[in-house]
């Protein structure tokens, strides 16, 4: 049976008629037209569907839309503010942290959560934090560099910690 769910997405309240079984990822993509959130697997491995739920990175293919009622959802479309790229978006661009771009939205959303927890992560900490985001194109090296660069930007003048 379909029911109305009311979701707070990127600061706006959106409603959709969905079945309880509808996955948040599908509702974002199919019902709310937020197709920046991608689906790359079916076992909660690849992280292409990562969005922020109340500020925390979550795999939206492993969450029912009905579970998300009452939560603040942020998708890749909601990351830039007033037309300004988020420092992570900027850094992925500058450091060539993407190729086909399919994993990129999820990768960036996970990195947002990481940098909220740890403003100066080491390379090892970054690699650990994004192990639930698969990228088949970049070999991860420039993604790590991008996250490090964004972390530096977000810290402002704070000098970077030596790589471990």
């Amino acid at each position: 049976m379909k029911r109305t769910v009311s979701l707070s997405v990127n600061g706006a309240t959106r409603t959709a008629e969905v079945e309880p079984r509808a996955l948040l990822a599908h509702v974002l993509r199919d019902d709310l037209d937020l197709t920046g959130t991608h689906i790359g697997c079916d076992t909660s491995q690849c992280g292409a569907c990562t969005v922020l739920i109340d500020g925390r990175a979550v795999k939206s293919c492993t969450m029912l839309a009905v579970q998300a009622e009452g939560c603040q959802i942020t998708t890749i479309e909601g990351l830039a503010t007033n037309g300004n790229l988020h420092p992570l978006q900027q850094a992925f661009w500058e450091k060539h942290g993407l190729q086909c771009g399919f994993c990129t939205p999820g990768m960036i959303m996970t990195a947002v959560d990481l940098l909220a927890q740890n403003s100066n992560p080491s390379e090892g900490e970054i690699r650990h934090a994004i192990e639930g985001n698969y990228c088949r194109c970049t070999g991860y090296q420039n993604i790590v560099a991008a996250i490090q660069a964004a972390a530096a930007t977000l810290r402002g003048a704070t000098p970077a910690r030596a790589a471990s």
Binding site: G47, I53, T62, E131
Partner: peptide, 9 residues
């Protein structure tokens, strides 16, 4: 356990 996202939820 899992990964960052899995641990969040």
């Amino acid at each position: 356990i899992g990964d960052l996202q899995v641990r969040n939820k």
